[in-house]
Simulated assay, not measured.
Amino acid sequence: MIAMTASAQSDIGGHSDEAAPLAGGQALRLLIVDDHPLFREALASAIALAFPEAVLHEADGIGTACEILGRNPAIDLTLLDLSMQGVTGFEGLTAIRTRFPRVPILIVSGVTDPRIMHEAVRHGAAGFVPKAVDKATLTRAISEVLGGALFMPPDLAAAPAPVRGGDKAPIAERVARLTPQQMRVLGMIRQGKLNKQIAYELQVGDSTVKAHVSEILRKLEVISRTQIVIETAYVDFDQAGGGF
């Protein structure tokens, strides 16, 4: 269990001005998103012991987290609880991944169901850590995710992923179903642009962009913008006919 010791400072309070160095001399900056103050304090304390020079930011909800990420583009990793007030399922994970697709998210959750862990990864999480893990496992999870790896606890990762109904065509084939305008919208979604930004660049109305996004989701057989980004990450768009 992550022990409760002295807390780090926060955006809901303030923080250390220095950060632990990453490779290349860059500073380590982490965001903790959890609506339980005592657990935020415990998690911040555990992280401070492992990364004593790290700058820690804290948020008690998804809205606050997005504000902090918007103000601090140098944040290296978000640690997110799935179960918070006002959030259902993977809504919080999807909201952050859609707006800030370049910031990896490590789920730190009280849930230990392997099906939830696998689904969180499908929705864009870079790792999953139960709240009951020890500090060494938490430290390893943070280090591996920061290094670009996907972290899952061995006992949960060994469980089979849930079987999903229906076989999808390869992603390149699904991308090839898109019209030229939908391909342009897809390219902007992959760049993290919002509907209003897409509408401005294409000189079309918001409703037109929404219609394109809905068709893209349908044709790619996904349910969120985050899944669009994840599933198309390695597509050769020149070959698929999208040359953007």
Rank of each mutant, 00 (worst) to 15 (best):
Arg102Asp: 10
Gln197Asp: 03
Ile171Pro: 10
Gly124Lys: 00
Thr179Gln: 12
Ile105His: 10
Asp155Lys: 04
Leu186Ala: 02
Val163Leu: 11
Pro160Ile: 07
Pro101Arg: 04
Ser143Val: 06
Leu194Arg: 04
Ala157Arg: 14
Val129Ile: 02
Arg122Lys: 10
Glu173His: 06
Arg177Ser: 09
Gln181Pro: 03
Lys131Gly: 08
Glu119Ile: 15
Ala176Gly: 06
Leu156Gln: 10
Val103Leu: 01
Gln181Asn: 01
Pro114Val: 11
Thr112Asp: 03
Phe100Ala: 11
Ala172Thr: 05
Arg99Asn: 00
Glu119Asn: 13
Leu202Asn: 08
Gly166Cys: 00
Pro104Ile: 03
Ile107Asn: 08
Arg164Trp: 01
Thr98Arg: 14
Ala199Met: 01
Ala141Gly: 04
Ala169Trp: 06
Arg177Ala: 03
Pro160His: 07
Gly166Ala: 00
Lys196Ala: 12
Pro170Ala: 02
Gln182Glu: 15
Phe128Tyr: 14
Gly127Ala: 03
Thr137Ser: 12
Lys131Asn: 07
Gln203Arg: 11
Leu178Ser: 01
Pro153Thr: 06
Pro170Lys: 02
Leu150Lys: 04
Ile105Tyr: 12
Ala199Ser: 03
Arg97Cys: 07
Gly147Ser: 14
Met152Trp: 04
Ala95Met: 08
His123Gly: 05
Lys135Tyr: 11
Gly166Lys: 00
Phe128Leu: 00
Leu186Arg: 03
Pro160Gln: 10
Pro130Arg: 03
Pro160Arg: 09
Pro162Glu: 01
Pro180Gln: 10
Val145Thr: 08
Phe151Asn: 07
Arg174Tyr: 04
Thr139Lys: 15
Ala132Trp: 07
Arg184His: 12
Gly148Trp: 12
Thr139Gln: 15
Ser109Glu: 11
Asp167Pro: 07
Ala159Glu: 03
Pro154Asn: 05
Ala169Lys: 08
Lys135Asn: 08
Arg177Tyr: 05
Val129Trp: 00
Ala126Phe: 06
Ile198Leu: 01
Leu146Tyr: 10
Val163Glu: 08
Gln182Val: 03
Gly110Ala: 08
Phe100Cys: 03
Thr112His: 08
Val185Phe: 00
Arg174His: 02
Thr98Lys: 08
Val121Leu: 15
Lys168Asp: 11
Ile189Gly: 09
Arg115Phe: 10
Gly166Thr: 00
Pro154Glu: 15
Lys196Gly: 02
